[in-house]
């Protein structure tokens, strides 16, 4: 799936030659957000968008500056990021481990896959009431939900990646006398990696989504909490600021994942620069 997207990117780039003078390829994606923000500012200043519906970007920026000076913004971002990462490491780690185990050993798959598929079909956010009863609004509640949300995309894609490996390649490895561990490191893991990265990027999206919802409902710190507090005091500029920060953090996480992906999948035709 990822490969296809990237291939299309390369093609679009070839066809989009007239736009190349605007910016190098990496920056061109930021032109549209910039236009939207400028348009929004203009509409706010002319009074088309009233202040109690959507404050102007400059006001949101000013609110952000205030929060930055007070240290509140940095504190909340740090605490949300910490929760996100802890949950991601726990959920992703278990997902990867189960994905490997079930991909490599059919016995393990027979025992656990049915259970995991049933749990997967429960929307994990529906567990919020139960999780609050269990953990209150402490850190465990958020981390648990993030871990649960992240588990499945990583699990499913790791499993798919391993099952999708060309059996001709594993046969080749055995013919040339590779030991099981060598076969895993040289053939199975690299072969599953593209699918694992697809799962990783999907998991990062779910990670933010889960965390924000959980923080909005049950927390006393973090970005979601900041937004909910602002709503109570009718600080619409802070609410909008929080939403924009989600967008930026989500984009940042995805960009990092893509970077890691293109570094480790250099062999993949979709990641080779044809103009190089």
């Amino acid at each position: 799936m990822t490969a296809v997207t990237t291939e299309t990117d390369t093609k679009t780039k070839g066809r989009g030659a007239p736009f190349r003078f605007l910016a190098p390829r990496g920056l061109i994606g930021w032109v549209l957000p910039l236009i939207i923000v400028l348009l929004w500012e203009a509409l706010s200043r002319t009074g088309v968008i009233t202040e109690n519906v959507l404050p102007a970007p400059s006001e949101v920026l000013a609110a952000g500056w205030q929060l930055l000076l007070s240290g509140e913004l940095v504190h909340n971002i740090a605490i949300s990021t910490q929760r996100a990462l802890i949950g991601f490491v726990i959920g992703g780690g278990f997902g990867f481990a189960f994905g490997l185990a079930n991909g490599l050993w059919s016995r393990s798959r027979d025992v656990t896959d049915t259970t995991l598929q049933m749990i997967r079909n429960v929307p994990h956010l529906a567990l919020i009431p139960l999780v609050i009863l269990w953990f209150g609004i402490g850190e465990e509640a958020k981390i648990f939900l993030v871990a649960l949300g992240v588990f499945f995309p990583i699990y499913v894609n790791t499993l798919l990646g391993i099952q999708g490996i060309d059996p001709q390649l594993t046969e080749m490895g055995r013919i040339y006398g590779m030991s099981p561990s060598r076969l895993f490191w040289r053939v199975i893991l690299p072969g599953a990696l593209p699918a694992i990265f697809t799962g990783l990027r999907y998991a990062l999206g779910i990670m933010w989504l889960t965390l924000i919802v959980a923080e909005t409902i049950a927390a006393n710190s973090g970005l979601g909490y900041m937004a909910m507090q602002a709503r109570e005091f009718m600080q619409i500029d802070v609410v909008v600021l929080s939403i924009l920060i989600y967008a930026l953090l989500g984009k940042l996480a995805d960009s990092l994942a893509r970077l890691a992906e293109s570094l480790s999948l250099q062999w993949h035709p979709a990641f080779q620069r044809k103009d190089a």
């Binding site: 001709q168 046969e171 040339y176 006398g177 062999w267 993949h268």
Partner: peptide
């Protein structure tokens, strides 16, 4: 089919024969 490992450079692929 050649059955080369797509993620290994050409030399590494040949070196698989020396496992």
């Amino acid at each position: 089919e050649p059955r080369l490992l797509p993620w290994a450079r050409v030399t590494e692929n040949v070196a698989v024969g020396l496992t």
